[in-house]
């Protein structure tokens, strides 16, 4: 069995850093030592518990559900991973018509959650631009109740003219437009549940170029979309922010996203996959300062722009 004391380990780690010129996965993390047996010594085990505490976090892509006790469950796992704030929405059921009664019900759930946990949840409304009058009324109602943006789903593409009044409204509010992205196999064969109206990154690029004053959030590059294609699509489009949420914690996803769009346009998020969301940011080959921006600073900067930032 390999024997290695802490000094040896640190020396080797430093040498590795000198060779690679970039952080090893997790090399920026603090370390502690797990007990060794009497006849063996092991490399010091990484203290993820310390790392969880080290970084404040704003989950820029979170959800609540209609199931009983769900709000408390979300808060419980957020507490476990030191996620102080969560930007929640309740998208409509996939495959539904997206009628006003559906999105109003979803938004009411979010408002209820915001009221129950006002220090933890920021709310985003949802709507369907196929119902323009009701959608605009819902914006007024929900923003009036304290929501901070909109989460859109797959009824209509983000670059469809039906969305223009909605985008223009959110330009006026200076608020974020978060859009679901189509799940599919390498952008050739989409997931069976995705309707024709689902947006792809190129649709968002078109909308973002048409409305450079708007702020768009490209949803969940870990959510089953082709994350390499998505990141490449938004290179050089400064008003598109990319959230790294989703259940797919493919290695090097964040490193690739940083390379494509830069650290300042990335938002941390989980999309209900909390371990992957927190884990792959800890694993990313970025500096402590960049990790702080990703977990917290970048979204807080947006919140500051609308006067809702976290101190």
């Amino acid at each position: 069995m390999k024997t290695q004391n802490r000094r040896d380990f640190l020396a080797k780690a430093a040498a590795a850093l000198a060779v690679t010129g970039s952080p090893l996965p997790g090399a920026a993390l603090s370390l502690d030592r797990s007990p060794a047996s009497q006849d063996e010594q092991f490399p010091p085990k990484r203290s993820l518990a310390d790392e969880i505490k080290k970084y404040r976090k704003i989950d820029a892509h979170a959800h609540v559900y209609f199931t009983k006790g769900n709000f408390e469950q979300v808060i419980d796992i957020a507490d476990r991973l030191n996620i102080g704030k969560l930007v929640i929405s309740r998208p409509m059921v996939p495959g539904g018509k997206g009628e006003p009664s559906e999105f109003i019900e979803c938004n009411n759930l979010v408002l209820k959650a915001m009221k129950q946990f006002p220090d933890r949840f920021f709310g985003q409304l949802t709507l369907n631009p196929q119902y323009p009058k009701e959608s605009m009324e819902e914006i007024e109602r929900c923003i009036g109740e304290g929501m901070i943006g909109v989460k859109l789903y797959n009824h209509v593409k983000i670059n469809d003219p039906l969305f223009y009044p909605v985008i223009e409204k959110f330009i006026g509010l200076k608020m974020m437009i978060l859009m679901h992205m189509g799940i599919g196999i390498a952008r050739i064969q989409y997931d069976a549940r995705e309707p024709k109206g689902v947006s792809i990154p190129e649709d968002m690029v078109e909308a973002a170029l048409r409305y450079p004053e708007a702020k768009f959030q490209l949803a969940h590059i870990g959510g089953g979309i082709d994350w390499e294609a998505a990141c490449k699509a938004v290179i050089g489009v400064p008003n598109i922010f990319v959230d790294v949420s989703g259940s797919n914690n493919a290695a090097n996803m964040i490193d690739f996203a940083v390379k494509c769009v830069g650290i300042d346009r990335l938002f941390f998020g989980c999309d209900s996959s909390y371990y992957q969301g927190v884990g792959h940011v800890l694993a990313a080959g970025i500096t402590d300062a960049e990790r702080e921006k990703l977990y917290f600073g970048n979204y807080n900067k947006y919140l500051k722009s609308i006067g809702r930032h976290v101190d």
């Binding site: 996965p25 518990a49 476990r80 914690n249 493919a250 371990y275 800890l282 694993a283």
Partner: peptide
């Protein structure tokens, strides 16, 4: 499952248990 998945999440699931 590294290097297909990130090297941290599998450990985080253990560490995060109370």
């Amino acid at each position: 499952h590294y290097p297909i998945l990130d090297p941290v999440t599998g450990l985080l699931r253990i560490e995060a248990m109370r």
